[in-house]
Amino acid sequence: MSANEHDETIDLTLKVWRQRSGGAPGQFETHEMKGVSVHSSFLEMMDVLNATLVRAGKEPVVFDHDCREGICGSCSMVINGQAHGAEPETATCQLHMRKFRSGETVFVEPWRADSFPVIRDLMVDRSAFDRVMSAGGYVSANTGSPPDANATPISREDSDQAMDAAACIGCGACVAACPNSSAMLFVGAKVSHLARLPQGQPERERRVVAMVQAMDSEGFGNCTNHYECSKACPKGIGVDVIAQLNRDYIKATVVRSN
């Protein structure tokens, strides 16, 4: 996959999705990218494309990005049919061009899910996730100040599992990669993160019910356990969080008396 050791640059044919707005039809636009530095990231390559477009008096390609260090979750691109590209556990901003072969044709598409409508080109509206979070993805009880956290005993296993779930950056790759556009990995991560900590217990049941309700009303699909989500997750979050979500939801709705 990697470029020849002696070549510091590669040439690519880029097929980029262009769409003026959510309702408008979209199509691929072809750009021949010559002399792309193998040391650049995918987003830097897109910056070069945009600089060229602007110089030619054309509209740059709109795409979402912020931290460029794999923690904010905004760089949503489906590259050659895979959310964030083929590298495991790597967000688009952390994907290097040395992972591509010179002469390769690279397709770049937005996340495709009705719950993530396209704003323009590669940028989608992921506020559905924000609405799911505001339905219950937080702790509203007073849990004290940071030093108090250290005074709360918690087992190593629980804290590790909570940290694994907390690694979710809310990028939406799980939805993009899921054949059903299901958001179960995201919601599972958020629910599990708090369900595994003592601070999350008082609101645990109310939270899972409210978040699943919000997830459903956003129109995400139903999980059929393909597990493409976890394979696409740049943080490698496992489907154990989905099992936890199922378990907690069933408990909260069917088993509990209130």
Binding site: Q82, R112, P179, N180, G219, N222, K231
Partner: peptide, 29 residues
């Protein structure tokens, strides 16, 4: 669930490459 899942994505990917989660059995349920 099949109907809802179809409705959840109207615009299809031009290129779709699975990462090894999906299987023949899971895809043909």
């Amino acid at each position: 669930t099949i109907v809802e899942n179809r409705k959840a994505r109207h615009s299809k990917y031009a290129v779709q490459a699975d990462r090894g989660g999906k299987t023949l059995a899971s895809a043909t349920m």
